[in-house]
Design a protein around this nucleic acid. Structure first.
Ligand SMILES: NC(=O)c1ccc[n+]([C@@H]2O[C@H](COP(=O)([O-])OP(=O)(O)OC[C@H]3O[C@@H](n4cnc5c(N)ncnc54)[C@H](O)[C@@H]3O)[C@@H](O)[C@H]2O)c1
Ligand SMILES: NC(=O)c1ccc[n+]([C@@H]2O[C@H](COP(=O)([O-])OP(=O)(O)OC[C@H]3O[C@@H](n4cnc5c(N)ncnc54)[C@H](O)[C@@H]3O)[C@@H](O)[C@H]2O)c1
Lengths: 213, 213
DNA sequence: ATATATTTGTTATTATTTTCACATTCAGAC
DNA sequence: GTCTGAATGTGAAAATAATAACAAATATAT
């Protein structure tokens, strides 16, 4: 096994491969080649093999990969062979959608708490979750062993929520607010910006088109 | 002005710069340096200048950039100096959140139609929008001059929705379903995958931590 | 057993992206 | 006017990532 730095793009693709493998497995497919994976997710076969090579040898030359095994390996690499408890801050529209999204549970994520500071929302049910006040956060972090926080509050509140998460020992943050947050180096943080991709589309439709690039 | 290929990462950052500039402008800041932009969005100053250099010279040496002007330029480059009408497919939890999100309107996006195939949802109001049946799509595309479609339906329906969009002449698609869609080359398509970033976090918390990388 | 067709794992090559470093330019002080 | 300090724009260098190419390995057919 290599001890090289793994590019983040490789991890991203690994997540995508694993979801493709899940689908193959559900459809009863037992063997798959790098070419078929590549075709299925829209990358090159060499890329698929290169990505997997960071973590070991999982295939059989002349044959391909065993779907069930490769799926298990990729999930393991991504850390999805164990359950992860999440805390979501902000029980607004996006928070609601995230809480009810079944796709997370399937991949070993479990929403262990939803928090909001709006008194009219606290106590309301989202599925079988109850929206909690902020002061319940510390105890729920402990009791549910939460390591990852999700920020779905307005931009104006995002930094203070991030600070609260850090103060309570969370190790990673997924931020949906379109703002760069300040957190200590040891905190893993990633932003999901729903507008940026939309603006890549308008850029391509406009500027790039005008330049004939 | 250069006629080089612009990296997509540059366009992504441009979108982020422009949002940062919006905030500065709202706060009454009139001048900003590449270093301050860099600080504000979490990249290097050289990166900021290099990104802008793809499109022209916007600053004054020794001084920096005029906030209002640079904001206007970045929006123009991104194609946001004109309104864009969107069609959203899927009036479920995510579709609902997208429809009610004010952040889109602010940046010259306008949701011109929401479509669903569930009879119990058709006719329901989301804000001042009414959920439309699929067969209304062709006429609304024309009347509202829609060029961009958003897919917020389950994976199982995503490809057929994409096909419908292509058939009706849409030019770009933003896809929230976690699956690679097949569309003709001339269609701009980007996926937004909310789980992938989460799995980068678990990877970093697990595997990467174990390797001490 | 041997040959053949496949497909992996890996090294070499190429391309892309980021960082660095600095000459150039400008505003303001004196 | 000239000098000084500051920050841009850019070409060269370094780092990173993707692609190509092929030897090694394996299953299957004969
Ligand atoms: N809705 C979307 O489709 C969408 C798209 C892109 C980005 N976003 C971003 O996601 C975030 C949430 O968006 P939304 O549409 O759900 O907004 P929303 O207004 O519907 O919900 C925000 C929620 O956060 C709560 N809140 C505010 N301050 C808080 C605090 N300090 N602690 C805890 N809770 C607090 C509010 O009470 C509210 O319930 C925003 O930053 C938005 O920019 C949303
Ligand atoms: N909710 C989330 O937080 C979340 C997170 C990540 C990804 N996603 C993805 O976004 C998509 C939507 O998620 P959701 O939670 O809103 O699901 P949802 O089930 O709440 O909504 C899906 C909607 O699509 C409609 N639909 C189904 N087939 C259709 C068709 N052919 N044409 C038009 N409408 C159709 C359904 O009637 C329903 O209203 C899914 O692909 C999901 O994987 C959602």
């Amino acid at each position: 096994m290599k001890t090289l730095r793994v590019p983040e793009a490789t991890v991203t693709r690994l997540s995508i491969y694993s979801r493709f493998l899940e689908r193959l497995d559900k459809n009863g497919v037992t063997t798959v080649s790098s070419g078929e994976i590549a075709e299925g997710v829209g990358v090159s076969p060499a890329q698929v093999r290169k990505d997997l090579a960071y973590f070991g040898e999982f295939g059989t030359r002349g044959v391909g990969y065993n779907v069930k095994d490769l799926l298990k390996y990729t999930l393991k690499i991504l850390g999805l062979d164990q359950p992860w408890s999440l805390a979501i801050f902000g029980a607004g529209n996006l928070g609601f959608a995230l809480c009810t999204y079944r796709g997370f549970n399937i991949r070993s994520f479990h929403i262990a708490g939803v928090f909001d500071n709006d008194p009219t929302r606290i106590g309301k049910k989202i599925g079988n979750l109850e929206v909690q006040p902020l002061d319940k956060f510390p105890e729920i972090v402990k009791s549910e062993n939460i390591r990852i926080g999700v920020i779905a509050v307005p931009v104006s509140a995002a930094q203070e929520v991030a600070d609260l998460m850090v103060k309570n020992g969370l190790e990673a943050i997924l931020n949906f607010a379109p703002v760069a947050l300040n957190v200590p180096d040891h905190i893993e943080i990633r932003n999901v910006d729903l507008s940026v991709k939309l603006e890549i589309l308008t850029f391509n439709l406009g500027f790039r088109a005008a330049q004939n690039l």
